[in-house]
Design a protein around this nucleic acid. Sequence first.
DNA 1: GCACAATGTAAACAATGTTAACACCTACGC
DNA 2: GCGTAGGTGTTAACATTGTTTACATTGTGC
Lengths: 204, 204
Amino acid sequence: MLTPTRKGSDYHHGDLRHSAISAARNLVNKDGISSLGIRRIADLSGVSPAALYRHFENLEQLRAELAAQVRQELGEFMQHRRNRIKPSANRKRTAILKFEALGEAYVDFARLHPRLFEIAFIQSNEKPISEFSDLAWDLLKESLTELTAVGFLDRKILESAPMIAWSSVHGLAVLVAQKAIAVRDQDGALRQILDGVQRALSYK
Amino acid sequence: MLTPTRKGSDYHHGDLRHSAISAARNLVNKDGISSLGIRRIADLSGVSPAALYRHFENLEQLRAELAAQVRQELGEFMQHRRNRIKPSANRKRTAILKFEALGEAYVDFARLHPRLFEIAFIQSNEKPISEFSDLAWDLLKESLTELTAVGFLDRKILESAPMIAWSSVHGLAVLVAQKAIAVRDQDGALRQILDGVQRALSYK
DNA sequence: GCACAATGTAAACAATGTTAACACCTACGC
DNA sequence: GCGTAGGTGTTAACATTGTTTACATTGTGC
């Protein structure tokens, strides 16, 4: 975070924009959202507070950009986990495993980076999650579509399915990030929730 | 919120503690959590900022007490909704309706009072929800126990059941409070989530 | 009726986000 | 090459926060 690719004098930082967001990430990750301040970010970036206003409208916008970056990270984390599932002859089984890998990754991210997870889903703009968390949402939709294709999921409710699945797992992830659930209970809870989602979305 | 039961002079407020929390409630309810400030609360209570420190350690503690009060309100709201379910000859059906009434009330509260719902579940103390939201948690446990008694719910997973149910509905409620789900989708989503929870907890 | 505890006020403090006026550096037109 | 314009930094101020300290007022128990 300390001045990457700087040339010549050190009056100009070189890449303050990225450095600032990176510093913000470290701050939140270590000490929580309330520790996020313009002056602290400026210090960590080796720059005066006012300099940040050349790159961000205000603190809120900086926070929002950090949140967007974290949501992207979350999506990539989920993608990576899903890609570890090896395709087998049993296409239905494979599809289910991939779906579950996404859910597990979602909750794992909340457990591994609770503060980042929290900041990622603070929003004041009232946007639907489908737009709010692009990558993760697309991965989920893709997975549910695949489940439909292999005949596991009821085609009639495919449209509403992502919202159901997201809500159910999101609730657990939020509580995990808040450490409101004992670690030893988390795995079992997730498994039952994923089970419930699948049953709710299956043919009856 | 303006000075209840005041007698004689007006140097002493009379019931500043309650007045302050009531003012805080109004502030959050109208303009969101970020509008919650010592000075604003003092103004609304007709008192100087420093006076509040006779009744609260700091702003954070005041906020925490407001949050606790809102969680209590939520619990009473759920209780009231559940009590509207008339017992019928079909005990199993009645138990299911009561369970669903609790879930509906939870999400309705989040829809009706989004800002209050949000502040209610901000916690830094890492307490499990079972202690964090006493009344609502007890109602849920009671409902699930009843479902077990009528033979609908698998007794083997009764212990973990409340956490599953809470998580699933909580996720939806959080997103509803954030207005991240279109209103027209909320009812259907809730119904499917409750359906999934019941299936996950039933005998297989 | 008097002392003491409870509860209020006013004024200061440090720390915050933000802005305005100024300084420096880089890059591009001539 | 040179100079100038624009991008990027600094310093100093500002208003607004939460909080504390010293003092004022009121209610209460002996």
